[in-house]
Design a protein around this nucleic acid. Structure first.
Lengths: 196, 196
DNA sequence: CGGATCGTTGATCAACTTCAACGGTCGTGG
DNA sequence: CCACGACCGTTGAAGTTGATCAACGATCCG
């Protein structure tokens, strides 16, 4: 049996569910183990589940016309991840989402989510807050992309997500920050030299 | 008296409000006229209102450390605009939002929004859907920024928002697309030449 | 009419990419 | 459990995209 405490705490911070609501939510979830390199979302297929990471790490990425990968999202413990447009509008995904480590996740499918929202005010509130949090996060990322150069984006990432930075392979971090692995390598090198 | 039909239609497409709910919503709104170049949000001040554009056009922008402006959002008729992080979390704004034309807007303040959400399921649902729409829109913009070069971003913008492109000054469009006005000018020039 | 603002053009420059090569490490099959 | 291949991060040289700077004409608005 998995320890669901982190998940329940995640929910509690957003909304105070009644006992029966929490039961309904938990019984709508599926616990899943996925191996490193396993995909949970692929382009062309509709993203049926919203995924919460209990243990492990994931990244979402798209491939452009030149075949280059661009990391759109990452997720470690206590983060949610999905192809947002695919899940919300139930349209085919454009994204891959893949496990970076052996992981344990909780998944809710969109039909269940829809049923929960229809069943009670508190679930509407919960998902409203989750959507607001996502939108606010994305808005900050857009501003970072507009206003900062490569080194500034890297530095800010280190400050905001020091634990994540240690767990992501360099090429994932580089493609999330919209630069090549070679250039990120040079930035890191320059930063070390500056210190001394 | 302003014609609120477009606004009511905007709401109706998301959720079917009861008569008394619609009344409560409308009585919580304020109609406002703002002149071109007037600011409705400024850095340092908390963004108290969510703004719906009945008539006119706006843009939101931030200024980076070098003093350059970057357009983060735009809005014409039937769009909503705010400094998302400032409004949702009621923290000081980092953004300017300014009228590009003489405009008529509807505004709801965050206290009223909070009260409406607390009062009924349908309002939670309404704002949940608005937040999802924002998040999905932002997610697509992030992907565009990661995967496309300057010309591709411009071309895609023209396809997606032909009417908006005609109303935005060139420098606003350029800074929204993360390039300089000079470079956008060159792209436009090159596109004309390609046709012939 | 006159000044400020906007879009354009051309020359130069900087940030970042591409390409190629190399060493280290990781995991996988024999 | 070892050996080998694949993958990852690094380095350097050359190339490209897009920025910067400066100058100019057009237009808008007061």
């Amino acid at each position: 049996m998995e320890d669901l405490a982190p998940f329940i705490e995640n929910i509690n911070q957003k909304v105070a569910l009644h006992h029966d609501e929490l039961d309904a939510l938990l019984s709508g979830l599926k616990v899943k183990k996925v191996k490193k390199k396993q995909f949970i979302v692929q382009p062309g297929f509709t993203n049926e589940h919203r995924t919460y990471v209990l243990q492990g790490a994931f990244r979402g990425y798209v491939i452009d016309v030149d075949g280059n990968e661009h990391t759109t999202q990452f997720a470690i413990e206590d983060w949610w991840i999905s192809d947002y447009n695919s899940y919300i509008y139930q349209i085919p995904a454009t994204m891959f989402i893949v496990a970076l480590e052996d992981s344990t996740i909780l998944q809710i499918d969109s039909q269940t989510e829809k049923r929960l929202k229809a069943s009670s005010y508190n679930f509407e509130k919960l998902f409203r807050m989750m959507a607001e949090k996502s939108a606010a996060f994305y808005a900050r990322r857009i501003i970072a992309g507009l206003t900062q150069n490569a080194e500034q984006r890297y530095t800010e990432f280190l400050e905001k997500f020091p634990k994540v930075a240690q767990r992501l392979p360099q090429y994932v971090l580089a493609s999330y920050l919209n630069m090549t692995t070679e250039y990120l390598s040079k930035i890191r090198n320059d930063k070390v030299k500056k210190k001394s």
